[in-house]
């Protein structure tokens, strides 16, 4: 998805993991995806640089769809669609 499409997404669950270091955002994502219905969208907010690569890899590994990332000043918004 491009940035405009991502900005128009309405996340079913927003996980604010800003301020935590790796693996904090990753574990927050794992914990929270269970609270999203299949087909729903989870948005992870993270200020940890490693998360930008880590969460998409995690999503692919465990079978969810990575939709994209928006770079905001000082943090990232990472969008994942629950697939199973």
């Amino acid at each position: 998805m491009n940035e405009d499409e991502l900005r128009n997404l309405q996340a079913d669950k927003v996980v604010d993991a800003r301020g935590t270091s790796c693996p904090g955002p990753l574990l927050a994502a794992k914990r929270s995806i269970a609270e999203v219905k299949v087909g729903g969208i989870m948005e992870i907010l993270s200020s940890d640089a490693g998360t930008k690569r880590d969460v998409p890899l995690w999503a692919k590994k465990v079978g969810h769809e990575y939709l994209g990332t928006i770079d905001e000043p000082g943090y990232f918004r990472i969008f994942i669609k629950r697939m199973k």
């Binding site: 693996p23 995690w58 465990v62």
Partner: peptide, 8 residues
């Protein structure tokens, strides 16, 4: 360990 758990 956290990374491994995240990947089930």
């Amino acid at each position: 360990l956290s990374g491994a758990v995240a990947q089930d």
